[in-house]
Design a protein around this nucleic acid. Structure first.
Length: 362
DNA sequence: AAGCCGGGGTC
DNA sequence: GACCCAGGCTT
């Protein structure tokens, strides 16, 4: 079997296999007993970024307190928020209230019944719109939630970072193709999410008993634990730079940054990096060669401080300008060289350095 | 495109 | 302690 026909086979059998699996393994959940768009909407909003086990009691309480969208529309917002207490993401509750009032007052109680119209409601994004459109109205639109990303990334071996916009398009397009082969869009959407939630789980997917095993790229290549790829947002690293700017005969000492670090191949001054705000000069952290120079010089004015924000680092820099005699004794610390102001103008430098120089010389 | 919003379960 | 959860809104 060649590549293309193989891919077509898995794409067309994917939905039916999951629907079959679902008919055997589905959990009995309260919102699966209704096609009332109001209740489905309520359940979907409650379940946004929320586990079924956590959301379920809230759903029961909300249905008891507000049986219809009109009841919810008339609710006191403080009372609604009190019912929501403990669920988190409280804007969901406020949007819920706002949309309930809109549906009741502007749409005369008639819930929007297409994906496109649902998308216009506050608090209803692409996932929730697809969920309501398919569950309540049978529209053939795919849900794409965290479960779907995981299942599709594994079965189809997609290595794109799911946090990026292009990857979201890739997954949405694939999901659109797959749902075309579903016997019933609503059942299929429930099935793929249920499958991700209880079988193709993040940590210990049950590959040995998986109905998609023979068509799963991740399983066949042993990558189920690497997929989906999801970039972790790097915490901004805090760094503390102390720069010593040696000046002699109108020249400044700079060096090219060679290390595998920020600003590679750009030029800056003699640098001491410390772990925190400690003052590198006062704490006598100076290596021999630099200490020798500092002792021959005089501090020109007060140190200048500035902050440079990078995507992943916050660099707090402190600049000491040190005037040396015309012919300082000893050699310059490693890699430092004397440059005239004109020469420095032509050197590539980090913005942090350029700003300092402009501040210094206008 | 990135930051923000949250409480809770799980390993 | 990190990751994730039936995401969406704002900037």
């Amino acid at each position: 079997m060649n590549w293309l026909s193989d891919l077509n086979t898995i794409e067309t059998s994917f939905a039916p296999i999951l629907e079959q699996w679902y008919s055997v393994h589905k959990r009995d959940l309260p919102w699966r007993h209704t096609r009332d768009p109001y209740r489905i909407w309520l359940s979907e909003v409650i379940l946004q970024q929320t586990r079924v086990a956590q959301g379920k009691p809230y759903y029961e309480r909300f249905v008891d307190a507000y049986a219809t969208v009109a009841d919810l529309a008339q609710a006191d917002e403080r009372e609604l928020l009190r019912l929501w207490q403990g669920l988190g993401y409280y804007s969901r509750a406020r949007n819920l209230h706002q949309t309930a009032r809109y549906v009741t007052l502007q749409l005369e109680g008639k819930f929007p019944d297409t994906y496109q119209d649902l998308l216009k409601m506050k608090g209803i994004g692409s996932y929730t719109a697809a969920a309501i459109a398919s569950f309540a109205f049978g529209e053939r639109v795919p849900v794409v939630d965290g479960n779907v990303y995981r299942v599709l990334a594994r079965v189809f071996g997609i290595e794109e970072d799911i946090t990026t916009t292009t990857a979201k398009k890739t997954f949405a397009a694939l999901a659109n193709r797959l749902i075309q082969s579903a016997d019933d869009p609503a059942t299929y959407n429930q099935a793929i999410m249920e499958f991700g939630a209880i079988h193709c789980t993040p940590v210990a997917p049950d590959c040995l008993l998986c109905p998609l095993q023979q068509g799963c790229v991740a399983y066949l290549t042993g990558r189920q634990h690497q997929l989906p790829v999801k970039a972790k947002k790097a915490p901004v690293r805090e760094r503390f730079f102390t720069y010593l700017i040696f000046r002699s005969k109108g020249k400044l000492a700079l060096r090219e940054r060679k290390a595998k670090d920020v600003w590679q191949n750009l030029h800056d001054f003699y640098l001491l990096e410390t772990e925190d705000h400690q003052d590198a000069l006062q704490d006598l952290l100076l290596p021999e060669a630099a200490l020798n120079l500092v002792q021959q010089g005089v501090m020109a004015g007060l140190p200048v401080e500035s902050v440079q924000l990078l995507s992943h680092q916050r660099i707090r820099a402190k600049f000491y300008l040190i005037d040396l005699p015309d012919e300082p004794t000893g050699s310059l610390p490693t890699d430092l060289h004397w440059f005239t102001i004109d020469e420095i103008n032509d050197l590539p430098k980090p913005v942090l350095i350029t700003n300092y120089l402009e501040n210094l010389f206008g």
